[in-house]
Design a binder for these strands. Sequence first.
DNA 1: GAATTAAGTAAATCATACTCACTAAGACCG
DNA 2: CGGTCTTAGTGAGTATGATTTACTTAATTC
Lengths: 232, 232
Amino acid sequence: MSPSPEKRAVVRLPRAERMHQIESAARKLFHKHGYTAARISEIASDAGISEAAIYKFYSNKRDLLHTLLKDWYMGMLDDFYEKLEGVEGARNRIKVIIWQHLKSIRECPDLCRLFYSEVRSMPDYYETELYELNRRYTLVLVDVVKTGIASGELRPGTSSALVRDVIFGGIEHRVNPFLMGRSDIDIDEMSSQLCDLVCQGICTPDAGQDMNRLMARLERVADRLDDKTGGG
Amino acid sequence: MSPSPEKRAVVRLPRAERMHQIESAARKLFHKHGYTAARISEIASDAGISEAAIYKFYSNKRDLLHTLLKDWYMGMLDDFYEKLEGVEGARNRIKVIIWQHLKSIRECPDLCRLFYSEVRSMPDYYETELYELNRRYTLVLVDVVKTGIASGELRPGTSSALVRDVIFGGIEHRVNPFLMGRSDIDIDEMSSQLCDLVCQGICTPDAGQDMNRLMARLERVADRLDDKTGGG
DNA sequence: GAATTAAGTAAATCATACTCACTAAGACCG
DNA sequence: CGGTCTTAGTGAGTATGATTTACTTAATTC
């Protein structure tokens, strides 16, 4: 009530606990304003400390962002390994990967958006741990495709890197309206559609060609019948 | 030679000419340092004017960037319409779109990289002319797919938006090493591979199912033969 | 050749990430 | 209990770079 000018007691917390508070505040404010517009000062006051204190825990604003995203990626990677266990067949495994990826996006659209729009444009991204994590993450799909080619389930000559890019790039574009808060996504439907597209393609099966093969075969059968009934 | 302190004569140019100089300088320096690290002051001095003069032509740094990218997009859009003229069939048209898009990227990797990494993360991107141009650009593909579905060439139920996202998102990821200067791209090969993937999918055709259909048909033929030779 | 337009400038202003030099809480130890 | 050490925390800067302001002057028009 009184203007009591005595300084508010400084509250000290153990390192891990304070970092948790900072990261919560950062996540909230990065989501609210976007990375660039989010102010370190606001994150600090939200976490109950001064601006300068942030730099006791993170070397800079980018490092704080990367810390959030690395945690997210590590969880996603664990999910992949866990959910792929026991799933047989390239197509089934591809579907699980797509579904899991969409689920991760659905659960943390804020982090996903930060990753898509902020991280990769930063200088030296390709030298960061986050990039390395992302590589390991997409490598899971690449390995599945390679195994599928080796087993004959997938066309020989399929570029596993192209499949990776089409799936993750396609998802990135596809979920954009959701990330912008303009729509919801139906994970089951989207994963089915994408998996079908990648596995079967969009062209109707070439009925004409099938017919030609069929007729050629019938012709040969007819010839043999002629041999049996007509000739000696 | 002498330290002649008299102010260098101010060179005045017509608006269009000066803007051209500014845009050349901006493109060069955005490419060299990236959007954020490129300095307005350096662009200005490179264009032969003071920092403040930039703001006589562009409302801010972002507006300058968008001006470069809008020109690029308008050229790409014209290319689409021109090169699609006379091409028949959904698959052929899709292939032309992919090829042209890759060609545009190959020709202006600097602008492409700016678009991918800087533009879409900016606030209010979805209210910009550039966003509108990008929509019109991708709509060309969407229309081709819809027409292909209507004509029966593409599977009914195909999501044209998914095809759009898979193609443009896939390309975005696929060309990334090239945009980072780490590799070259083979437009012909990449467009073939991507078009094949999207049209046919990656799974080997289901031979078992084809055989079943074939045998069923042969069975019916055999029945008819039986009717002719055996029964009356 | 006066009036108007438009190209250009120098010198602020402002915002904000990050640094510096310091304070003091609290754990541990003898 | 008192001294010491580690480390959480701070207030007051600094640096940088986009943008604004108020002004100057070259070119154009009538």
